[in-house]
Amino acid sequence: MKTQITIFKAGNPDLNARPMIQLTNIDKIYRTKTIETIALNKVNLEIERGEFVAVMGPSGCGKSTLLNIIGLLDSPTSGELSIGGQQLNSFNNKKLAAFRNFKLGFIFQSFHLINDLSVVDNVELPLLYREGVSGSERRKRALEALEKVGLRARTKHYPSQLSGGQRQRVAIARAIVGKPEIILADEPTGNLDSQMGEEVMNIMLNLNKTEGTTIVMVTHDEHMASKTKRIIRFFDGQQIN
């Protein structure tokens, strides 16, 4: 694990000069015995450090696939992906897991909190997979993250005791607790009413502004997308702007 910390340490000036996320000729094709579905077709995309971009497009256009590939949860059929200046095609599963843990934070439309764990335990989760972080340190950082999303008073609650907006704020706390450089949000306001959606969006905007976190957000909501610095539109697996 120590070597991973060295590998993923930020601050290398050469790496910092490159785009935070770079996709070159990315294809993603799903094959079954009878059908071949092209989810992404020759996608070339660069996202700079500290950018907040929205990815938009109709259902089935490949935006979630794109997010999964950037999030290293899925691998492209062909093409090259680099994050933070590091080419990732050659990484094995163990290295990819460590990379996700250090560099990426995820926010999902349906929150994906673990119902059997309390709020604070949910938030601590990414730090469980980071060696050398003690239990007390984990707790301290989780409480800090909950403070940032305004849920310091709900640490002992369980997800089922929270509203949708509160759950999504817990999910944001979980995404930022490990201080990742990139946050990938898949329709983070999709399951929330407009007021709660605004709250969640403001937290993300603030995070981008104050911490300089790069955020890639998939959304259907033009209003939310308009608050970001750039909108990338997809149609039939291709970028159209």
């Binding site: 949860l73 599963n93 460590a98 979980r174 490990g178």
Partner: peptide, 14 residues
């Protein structure tokens, strides 16, 4: 399964 997906997303190895 969902929990497994979440844990993997946040860096859990197999």
């Amino acid at each position: 399964a969902e929990e497994i997906g979440v844990r993997k997303s946040f860096g859990a190895t197999s």
